[in-house]
Amino acid sequence: MLSAKTEYACLALVRLAAEHASGQPVQGRRLAAEEGIPEGFLVQILQELKRLGLVVSTRGACGGYRLARDPDELSLGEVLDLVDGPPSGAGCVAKPSPLGEAVAEALIESASAERQRLRGVTLADVAAQATAPGGMYYI
């Protein structure tokens, strides 16, 4: 399960991927309004994405955000790796036990396999699927 921060980061990046060809930056206010992301939260997310080298910003009246790389070169798996870090086994087991450790290990393996799969899905892939007739994307 993704955190709201991670989901919003992915959504913002896919929006920037969809508009990448225009070469024009996307204003944070517009991105927040069109994607239903709380503007204050989006500003924090975009600042982190900039720090991570995923987006660049332009100041001024015509300013905004653009992807730092081509959307064909950036995968959802890489985004998750940068924003969330590697899958972890941190859980809510009150008392460590062999069963709890086995469950945690299975969950880590599953999350790692999912992350690997997402490394093969680029932002361009998702943006193209979203604008295709039907607009549904299944991973």
Rank of each mutant, 00 (worst) to 15 (best):
Ala9Asn: 04
Gln24Met: 12
Ile45Lys: 07
Met136Asp: 13
Pro71Gly: 05
Tyr8Thr: 05
Leu46Phe: 01
Ile37Thr: 07
Leu67Gly: 08
Pro87Asn: 04
Ala68Met: 07
Glu101Ile: 00
Leu76Trp: 06
Pro25Thr: 04
Pro87Gly: 00
Gly28Trp: 15
Ser88Tyr: 00
Ser112Ala: 10
Ala9Met: 08
Ala127Glu: 05
Ile108Asp: 03
Leu123Val: 00
Lys5Asp: 13
Pro38Gln: 01
Ala68Phe: 11
Ala32Val: 01
Phe41Asn: 15
Tyr137His: 09
Glu101Thr: 12
Leu76Lys: 06
Pro86Ile: 03
Ala12His: 00
Leu16Pro: 03
Met136Arg: 14
Ala9Val: 09
Ala132His: 06
Gly53Gln: 00
Leu42Trp: 09
Glu34Gly: 04
Phe41Thr: 15
Ala17Cys: 00
Leu67Lys: 06
Ala102Asn: 14
Glu7Lys: 15
Lys95Asn: 13
Leu16Gln: 01
Arg69Trp: 14
Leu13Met: 08
Ala106Pro: 09
Arg30Asp: 13
Phe41His: 15
Leu54Thr: 09
Thr6Tyr: 03
Glu7Arg: 15
Ala32Asn: 05
Leu11Asp: 10
Thr131Ile: 12
Met1Lys: 11
Ile108Arg: 05
Pro71Ile: 10
Thr58Cys: 07
Ile37Val: 07
Glu73Met: 11
Gly53Ile: 12
Leu49Glu: 09
Pro96Ile: 05
Lys50Gln: 14
Pro71Met: 02
Ala104Glu: 06
Ser97Tyr: 12
Val43His: 15
Lys5Cys: 05
Pro25Gly: 03
Glu35Thr: 14
Ala21Ile: 06
Leu16Glu: 09
Glu34Phe: 08
Arg69Cys: 12
Val121Arg: 00
Val121Ile: 11
Leu74Glu: 07
Val79Cys: 05
Gly53Glu: 07
Gly89Met: 02
Glu34His: 04
Val14Gln: 04
Leu16Gly: 03
Pro71Lys: 10
Gln24Glu: 15
Ala61Cys: 08
Val14Ala: 07
Asp84His: 04
Cys92Arg: 08
Thr131Ala: 14
Ile45Glu: 03
Glu109Asp: 13
Ser112Glu: 10
Gly85Cys: 04
Gln24Ile: 13
His20Trp: 12
Pro133Val: 03
